[in-house]
Simulated scan of single mutants.
Amino acid sequence: MENSPIFFADGADSKMIEAYKKAQETFKYFWREQSWEYRRIIPALTVSCVKVAFSQENPSSEDPIVEHMWINEIDFDGDNVKGYLINEPNELTNIQVGDYVEVPLNEISDWLFATPQKTKKSTGISKLFSSSADPLPKAYGGFTIQKMRSDMSKQERQDHDDAWQMDFGDFNDIEVVYEQKEHPENIVEHPMSKNMTEEFVKFLNEYPGELTHQDEKGLTLLHKETIAGNLSSVEIILEAGADKNIKTNTGKTALDFARQLNWEHLIPVFEK
């Protein structure tokens, strides 16, 4: 990341601070999944939110009041994370539920998304004893949640997961991309990026102006696909003749974002 992580002095132990750091380093995978979710006709995520550290001055102490709360309807421009607060603050008075939030990436403390799990079909005698209930949605990310789960007893973890109605899995083995164990290649590239190549080529042929269009922040399609880590899309855009040197309003090229977010598979594409 471009900026060093910020960790508020809120009494967090070293393992919780490490959880904040992991969340910031891996946020790019959350955003990649969320960016594809916005393109789906049928939603695939049951939960999608980001935890942010909010603070204000404490009149009775030198240390600020700090609360880590969740936002949803996430957007990301490569530098700042945006969304709407979904928690009721306990002590803070400078923010409330529903407020629009925009913070630098280095001020998030966690992220979480969840997807439905496939129901395993039972056959023979196992079918007689299998539960008819669908499995709980599988959670990805949730580093601070997993840190807290690691401090719980087995029964406490079960009660916690039942309350969240999510399968958090093993707190020692946190997955960050969909079906990471079944398809390790998903770490490198989202399957939709590869599967949608024909449609994407067709889209650019029909709307060539999208190659040069810049939004209010100066972001082009190339910038946005780079921020989301989509190799196939980036290659198609470049092959279609996009200028890789176009800069945003803050003076950043697509390569700058690839380096900033540490998308290692994209950097060589721009350095050719």
Rank of each mutant, 00 (worst) to 15 (best):
E2N: 11
D10H: 15
D13H: 10
D13N: 15
S14Y: 04
S14E: 15
A19G: 06
K22I: 02
Q24K: 09
Q24M: 05
T26Q: 12
T26I: 00
F27H: 15
K28S: 02
F30K: 03
Q34G: 01
Y38D: 06
R40G: 01
P43L: 02
P43K: 10
K51P: 03
K51G: 10
V52T: 03
P59D: 01
D63Y: 05
P64I: 06
E67M: 00
E67C: 03
M69K: 06
D79H: 13
N80K: 10
N80H: 12
K82H: 06
G83F: 06
L85Y: 01
E88F: 04
L92Q: 10
T93R: 11
N94E: 04
L105E: 05
S109E: 12
D110A: 00
W111Q: 09
K120P: 02
G124S: 03
G124D: 08
S131V: 15
A133V: 15
L136Q: 15
L136G: 10
P137D: 06
K138Q: 10
K138E: 13
Y140M: 04
G141I: 07
Q146A: 07
K147S: 08
M148F: 11
D151V: 12
Q155V: 15
R157W: 00
Q158N: 14
W164Y: 15
D167R: 04
F171L: 01
V177C: 05
Y178M: 05
K181P: 08
H190R: 14
H190P: 12
K194S: 14
N195F: 02
T197Q: 14
E198P: 00
E199M: 10
F203S: 04
N205I: 01
Y207C: 00
K217C: 02
G218S: 10
T220H: 02
L222A: 13
E225R: 11
G229H: 14
S232R: 09
S232P: 04
V234D: 07
I236D: 00
I237D: 02
L238T: 14
A242L: 08
K252Y: 09
A258R: 09
R259I: 13
L261V: 05
L261R: 11
L266E: 01
I267S: 00
K272Q: 11
